[in-house]
Design a protein around this nucleic acid. Structure first.
Length: 338
DNA sequence: AAGAAGGAGTGGC
DNA sequence: GCCACTCCTTCTT
């Protein structure tokens, strides 16, 4: 059996899989494992946003990608994380399948094995391209929100501290305290996974995995020309990052910060989301979390929702934010929605 | 208790 | 001066 189960420090159940084929929808995940050729389907009966279900666990060789809430690697090691309490159960009618090339499954297509494999290879390329694009967009957003550069090698100790706090909060990791205090980006990038674990036994490996994604992205940025859109989807997001004033030392306003969070529902939908995007109406779902993220961004450890909401209310008379016509708790409206 | 509203003082830029 | 942080009181849900 290629599956190992355990409980991570973030309160997540971890399942490491080595599949040869997999397909997944919002409600189910089907994996054909390579070693015992056993097809399994999990029903993911959980209403939380997908990013809640899965996140990077550890660094593996090669560039790896986290998207569709599935982490996979070039050597086909998959890592699946499921929150405690989420119902994950093997389908009872598990059956045997012959070994296949490691690709994303194309369900329901009755084609020849050769054509099937070619289609699957193309499908994998498309998925990889989309995945990398998503990762780069996530990093771009984090850069804007934290006001740091995408390349960890350029971080100063303050940037490192911000990134650690941010990652810790975004993925609900145990607090690392001052484990990475006074390290700059170069220090961080030269540290091994073992050193990460020594500094933070609870989540050092997870932080190392996240840093590895950032390092890989920075490496890809250097390797790919700015006009090469292969790894950046339809937009040249790296150029956009460099052109963005929020990455060049300009102070960010709270309303801008909130909009940035709202633009990434995949990452921040748990704590803030649109109720009506056209009208600019949004709801703060987790007031403490949003306040904490704002506090990290502004280097204000004592930030809380009381203070954040006072700042939001200052926008009333400036005509930036108001309460909607039907006032609800934690619901606000941008006066000029984009 | 938590959130909403707004007054007032403070500090950084 | 602008903007956000902080502390505060009062009121509402």
């Amino acid at each position: 059996m290629a599956e190992t189960m355990g409980t991570s420090d973030a309160g997540l159940t971890t399942s490491t899989l080595h599949p040869s084929r997999a397909s997944f929808t919002e409600s189910s995940l089907t994996i054909l494992e390579r070693e015992d050729h056993e097809l399994k389907t999990w029903d993911l009966e959980d209403t939380k946003p997908p990013r809640d279900l899965l996140c990077p666990e550890r660094s593996l060789s090669g560039v790896y990608f986290s998207c569709f809430d599935m982490l996979f690697t070039e050597d086909s090691a998959w890592l699946l994380k499921v929150p405690e309490g989420a119902h994950v159960s093997p389908r009872p009618d598990a059956r045997k399948e012959p070994e296949q090339c490691p690709v994303i499954d194309s369900p329901g297509l009755g084609v020849s094995p050769e054509l099937d494999c070619q289609m699957e290879e193309r499908s994998l390329e498309q998925v990889q391209s989309m995945v990398v694009g998503e990762v780069l967009k996530d990093i771009e957003t984090a850069c804007k929100l934290l006001n740091i550069t995408p390349d960890p090698m350029e971080w100063n100790p303050g940037n490192v501290q911000k990134w650690v706090l941010w990652t810790e909060h975004l993925y609900r990791l145990p607090q690392v305290g001052k484990a990475f205090h006074e390290l700059n980006g170069k220090d961080l990038c030269t540290m091994s996974e073992e050193e990460f674990r020594q500094r933070s036994p609870l989540c050092g490996d997870v932080l190392y995995a996240h840093l590895d994604i950032w390092k890989s992205a920075a490496w890809m940025k250097e390797e790919c020309s700015p006009r090469d859109s292969k790894f950046s989807g339809s937009d040249d997001i790296w150029s956009a990052t460099e052109a963005d004033s929020s990455c060049s030392g300009q102070p960010i306003h709270l309303w801008q910060f909130l909009k940035e969070l709202l633009l990434k529902p995949h990452s921040y939908g748990r704590c803030i989301r649109w109720l009506n995007k056209e009208k600019g109406i949004f709801k703060i779902e987790d007031s403490a979390h949003v306040a904490r993220l704002w506090g990290i961004r502004k280097n204000r450890p004592a930030m809380n929702y009381d203070k954040l909401s006072r700042s939001i209310r200052q926008y009333y008379k400036k005509g930036i934010i108001r309460k909607p016509d039907i006032s609800q708790r934690l619901v606000y409206q941008f006066v000029h929605p984009v």
